[in-house]
Design a protein around this nucleic acid. Structure first.
Length: 179
DNA sequence: AAAGAGATGGTCT
DNA sequence: GACCATCTCTTTT
């Protein structure tokens, strides 16, 4: 599983009988040999999940305020993951709107922090599987065709800026993916 | 439409 | 003590 493969998949969160979901339209790849990656300096308490089994979630606190969610894509010990940067809401739009009150629909989940708030992903979800059928958070292939994809530079980093590992669904552009 | 700045806290040096 | 894989609000063109 690599970063572009996640585009078009459904990210579902089901808790307390409430189901919300969104289609993944933007991702970024991070690897061990990449100076922009949390795994670049080796395993720590924070990034432990990133060095764990593939198909699990690595969730961290960004700028002291927001959660950002990654899907671990490397083998056990690799330190490789894909940041989920944006989704288009599919299920539970009413719940998502109430969590993101006051924002227009296009800004409900068009960023890594917004995505987590919209879908209810928190630090408590660090390390859980998105592949197991019993998991509250899942990445589902619902048969939707993979979107046409554009590739570009990653966002919000100061090192590794020349590595074009940002992937976005063409149909989600323009201006709906970024801020 | 674009640019700037503050919020806010864990992690690592 | 510096540095962020961000977001939102305010100010300026």
């Amino acid at each position: 599983m690599v970063a572009p493969d996640l585009l078009g998949k459904l990210l579902t969160v089901e808790r307390d009988g409430v189901r919300v979901s969104g289609r993944v339209v933007e991702t970024e790849a991070y690897t061990r040999s990449d100076p922009a990656s949390h795994s670049f300096n080796g395993p720590t308490a924070r990034n432990a999940a990133m060095f764990g089994l593939p198909g699990r979630l690595y969730v961290y606190l960004s700028y002291g305020i927001h959660c950002c969610a990654n899907v671990v894509t490397g083998s056990d010990g690799d330190g490789q993951a894909v940041l989920l940067r944006a989704v288009v809401p599919i299920d539970g739009l009413d719940v998502i709107r109430s969590r993101r009150r006051g924002r227009p629909d296009r800004e409900l989940a068009n960023g890594p922090g917004k995505l987590c708030e919209a879908l209810g992903i928190t630090l408590a979800d660090d390390g859980i599987s998105v592949a197991d059928a019993g998991s509250p958070i899942r990445i589902v292939d619902d048969g939707t065709a993979p979107p046409e994809t554009i590739v570009g530079a990653r966002v919000g980093i100061t090192r590794g800026v020349d590595t074009p590992w940002r992937f976005a669904a063409l149909h989600a552009l323009p201006g709906r993916v970024d801020d």
